Simulated scan of single mutants.
Amino acid sequence: MAILGFAVIRGNGVELKTKGGAKLNPGGYSRTSHGGGGKVWGNSKKFEAPALDFKLAADEDVDIIELNNMEEVTITFEGDNGLTYMITGAALENPAELDEDSGDISGRWIGRVCKKI
């Protein structure tokens, strides 16, 4: 099996003009240790939703307003190493941002469930 080199991101089956640097968090629990007096008394956990940070090429056919209006999207993260993950019920956490200097549109998809497919 190959090591991940790049990923293709799709929204509802349509390939997005993905630039490098995407980060997939499949969700799960973040944990915090609680202690005092040089001892850990226990841990608490908090559920974190699945998320995908992305950068898209700000091409003439990539409409940031249309992107911001997408809700209940199925996002797929297809690695060149053969692994594919799907986030369902996704929407942007905050409006995507257009960076004039880099030519990027960046944002973060959050969803309900992430599955390996």
Rank of each mutant, 00 (worst) to 15 (best):
L92D: 04
G36D: 12
V73D: 07
G79D: 03
L92M: 10
G21D: 11
G20R: 14
T88C: 02
G28T: 03
Y85Q: 02
A2L: 14
F77D: 00
I64N: 08
V73S: 10
E97T: 11
T88Q: 03
T18N: 14
G111H: 06
M86C: 03
M86N: 00
D53C: 00
P50K: 05
P50C: 08
S30Q: 11
V113D: 07
D101C: 05
S30G: 09
N94R: 13
E78G: 05
N68M: 12
S102A: 14
F6G: 08
F77I: 07
T76I: 04
E72V: 05
L24G: 04
T74E: 12
I75R: 03
L83G: 01
V113A: 03
A90N: 02
D99A: 09
K17H: 12
E60L: 13
T88Y: 00
A7L: 01
T74N: 08
E78K: 08
V62L: 13
G28N: 06
G20M: 12
E78W: 02
Y85T: 00
K55W: 07
G20E: 15
V62G: 00
N69T: 10
L52P: 03
K23G: 03
C114V: 04
T76S: 09
A58T: 02
G21C: 15
K115V: 13
I9S: 01
A51H: 07
V62C: 13
N94C: 04
A57R: 13
P26M: 11
D99P: 01
I117E: 09
A51E: 14
V62F: 11
G11L: 03
F47S: 07
I64D: 06
E15V: 14
K17A: 15
I87W: 00
T18H: 10
A91G: 11
G5R: 13
V14K: 13
K55Q: 12
E66M: 09
F6K: 15
P95I: 01
I105M: 07
D104L: 06
D53A: 14
E48P: 05
G11K: 07
E72Q: 11
E100V: 05
N81Q: 10
G89T: 02
